[in-house]
């Protein structure tokens, strides 16, 4: 195992977060089994107090889990030089197959934990906290995921040996081999570009529609559109956005752009995409929540903020993507 301060911080933080979540989940289980909003008994009062503890613990733990994704990528970038054949985080991830799984779980956790935190905040603003049951069910589902994240991270980091020969992004994202990565890299540029800008356009139009109308349908559509945009964008990053960023017709790596060589442009790019899609998902999901009056008022109040955040994040993302395509000297489509 490599004793790197980042790895230590990740493992320490994730174990503490998991411990906090375990305790919160146990409390949540007890609250769930005895929760009775109609009652005004002493026991119910105690339970209501406990909910504050649960949400505080969970807020902290989930906030860390969300940040840990960033620290994880940061650490991967930092230690890639230890491995033969690694040029960027791809190499570090390849050094041990579990790496990709950890990354996947981190991405899933980013969305689910952020959704949980936002709905928890909504719930706490209301008087009657109607979301207690769905929230705690969600918590019980997410806790094992965080545990799995910790376990996989542990086995990933302990399994890293500096002598391992890994493969570089260049060999993973090349055309011609039959992996998902190379299929993404091999997507024809013109249709992918069209799909990507179409998806982004639909997303923005739906956002504007949601801002101006209260129709639930638009929000459901926006939910679908953000999911679509997320996956289309990831494919687009591998397929053509990376090419424009690196100004190189064969370089498809989605991680190199996080390096200092490219001015860390990957961080705002991915930040914009993730935040934009997250806030695009939220209004649609909020429509699925139980329709109590108090909750309805809160959703009305906060929804506008979500939509605006989604709008700005996606616009930033699109500007970073479109910048080199429109202004750069690199012309891919002429080949």
């Amino acid at each position: 195992m490599l004793l790197n301060p980042g790895i230590l911080a990740l493992l320490l933080g994730c174990s503490l977060a998991f411990a906090m979540l375990l305790y919160a989940a146990w409390l949540g289980l007890r609250i769930l089994s005895r929760w009775d909003p109609q009652s005004s008994s002493e026991a119910q009062l105690q339970l209501e107090r406990r909910t504050y503890l649960v949400s505080t613990l969970t807020n902290y733990a989930f906030s860390f889990e969300i940040l840990s994704g960033l620290l994880f990528i940061f650490t991967l970038e930092d230690i890639h030089s230890l491995f033969i054949g690694a040029m960027c985080a791809t190499g570090t991830l390849n050094a041990n197959q579990i790496g990709w799984l950890v990354l996947l779980i981190k991405i899933v956790l980013f969305f689910t934990a952020a959704i949980w935190v936002h709905f928890n905040r909504l719930d706490q603003r209301t008087e009657d906290t109607p979301l207690v049951r769905p929230k705690y069910l969600g918590l019980l589902l997410l806790t094992p995921l965080v545990g799995l994240d910790l376990l996989l991270q542990y086995s990933y980091f302990t399994g890293l040996q500096p002598e391992i020969i890994t493969s570089c992004c260049g060999s993973l994202f090349t055309l011609g081999s039959d992996s998902v990565a190379s299929e993404l890299a091999g997507l024809p540029v013109e249709p992918t570009m069209l799909t990507f800008f179409l998806a982004a356009g639909i997303f923005l139009i739906l956002l504007v529609l949601c801002l101006s109308s209260k129709l639930a349908l638009f929000r459901y559509l926006l939910f679908v559109a953000s999911l679509g945009l997320f996956f289309v964008s990831l494919a687009a990053i591998v397929s053509f956005i990376s090419l424009y960023i690196y100004q190189m017709p064969t370089h498809h790596c989605p991680f190199d752009m996080l390096q200092a060589n490219y001015g860390f442009i990957g961080y705002p790019l991915y930040g914009g995409l993730f935040i934009g899609c997250l806030y695009g998902l939220l209004p649609g999901l909020a429509q699925l929540l139980p329709k109590t009056l108090s909750l309805h008022i809160e959703i009305e109040k906060t929804e506008r903020r979500w939509l605006l955040r989604a709008f700005f994040a996606i616009v930033i993302f699109l500007l970073i993507v479109a910048g080199p395509i429109l202004l750069g000297p690199f012309i891919l489509l002429s080949y």
Binding site: M87, G170, M248, T250, H251
Partner: peptide, 9 residues
């Protein structure tokens, strides 16, 4: 300078 095949420095 970068490699035209894999894009490495």
């Amino acid at each position: 300078e970068r490699c035209p095949v894999c894009g490495m420095f």
